[in-house]
């Protein structure tokens, strides 16, 4: 197990270098000159442009720039954004917010998604199953920004139950509504996925054996059935964690949450290279760690899987 984890951690290094290089190249392939764009509609003064480009190292060749970036990265320096703030400061502000938001969404989708999936799987064909099917299909088919604006207009503005936007991004109670919106689609997927898995496994031999052995129903469902049915769900939840962290751009925009998605959106529109690469690098690390955790969880859920 220890060797397996070590091997996986070592594999992360080439993946990490490869992805940062691709992002780096992609940012610099964007059309338009980000430094000139700082001047807006006004004419860019050539001497100042040259000075700023030198300051940000943009006058060097791409390979040199990448090398500089990597070597600084290993010293813990993520570079300076075009706003002249340290990228590490900006991310330091945004990451805790996003983690809280993602956590709210994740807990919601995991708890309610699996619960609904189990319920409908066990009661397949019954009225509960039909209702949940319709509701989840509805949520999946409505784009998330529609759900977001509807929630904002009704729950926030019309009924005044909560603030229409988040006034303090670090207050987790204010992140509940955005979290519900953010997690809603995944919740629907999780419940559908769990249901399918449950329906498939309930007919399998080991369940029949367990019932024939005379095990209590609680143990058959809770341990034998659920544990095996969760394997595909865990895979989905693992990758979804990454998506929740980076893909919250729409939700963060609607509710004015100052998280990573928000930072990334602003960085891309401003072609703020150092900030884009820094943010995406963080997301890459999140995905890598999440997928490692998923693989390790497999071993826990399925005793047949052993990592040597």
């Amino acid at each position: 197990m220890g060797r397996y984890i070590l091997r996986r951690l070592l594999q992360m290094i080439p993946v990490f270098i490869g992805t940062t290089l691709i992002i780096f190249l992609a940012v610099y392939a964007l059309p338009g000159d980000p430094v000139k764009a700082l001047f807006g509609d006004k004419a860019a003064d050539p001497a100042t442009v040259a000075r700023l480009k030198h300051q940000y190292g943009l006058d060097k060749s791409l390979i040199e720039q990448y090398w500089m970036y990597l070597s600084n990265l290993f010293k813990g320096d993520l570079g300076t954004s075009f706003s002249q703030r340290e990228v590490s400061d900006i991310l330091g502000d945004a990451i805790p917010v996003t983690i809280q938001l993602a956590l709210v969404a994740f807990v919601l989708e995991a708890v309610f998604g699996i619960a609904l999936g189990m319920l409908t799987g066990l009661k397949r064909g019954k009225i509960v199953d039909q209702i949940v099917l319709v509701l989840t299909l509805l949520v999946i088919s409505i784009p998330i920004f529609v759900i977001g604006y509807l929630a904002q207009v009704y729950i926030g503005t019309k009924w005044g139950i909560v603030n229409p936007t988040v006034t303090d991004s670090n207050d987790i109670t204010q992140l509940i509504l955005p979290g519900i919106v953010l997690g809603s689609v995944s919740l629907a997927y999780v419940s559908r996925l769990t249901r399918t898995s449950v329906v498939e496994n309930i007919r399998s031999d080991y369940i029949r054996t367990a019932i024939a052995k005379g095990l209590p129903r609680r143990r058959v469902v809770g341990v034998h059935l659920m544990r095996n049915s969760l394997i595909p769900v865990v895979t989905f939840l693992g990758t979804d964690l990454g998506a929740l962290m980076g893909g919250a751009i729409v939700t963060e925009g609607i509710f004015n949450v100052k998280g990573v998605g928000n930072t990334l959106y602003k960085a891309i529109t401003g072609a703020d290279g150092p900030l884009v690469v820094g943010t995406v690098t963080f997301l890459v690390v999140v995905y890598l760690v999440a997928s490692l955790l998923v693989d390790l969880l497999y071993a826990v859920l399925d005793p047949r899987i052993r990592y040597a």
Partner: peptide, 26 residues
């Protein structure tokens, strides 16, 4: 049992929203 847990889910969401209401709204 299933129906009960669905009801419980609905309540939890209402409670969650009420909690958010405490957070703001002048």
């Amino acid at each position: 049992r299933g129906a009960k847990s669905a009801k419980w889910a609905a309540c939890a969401i209402v409670v969650a929203m009420a909690a958010t209401a405490c957070g703001g709204n002048k």
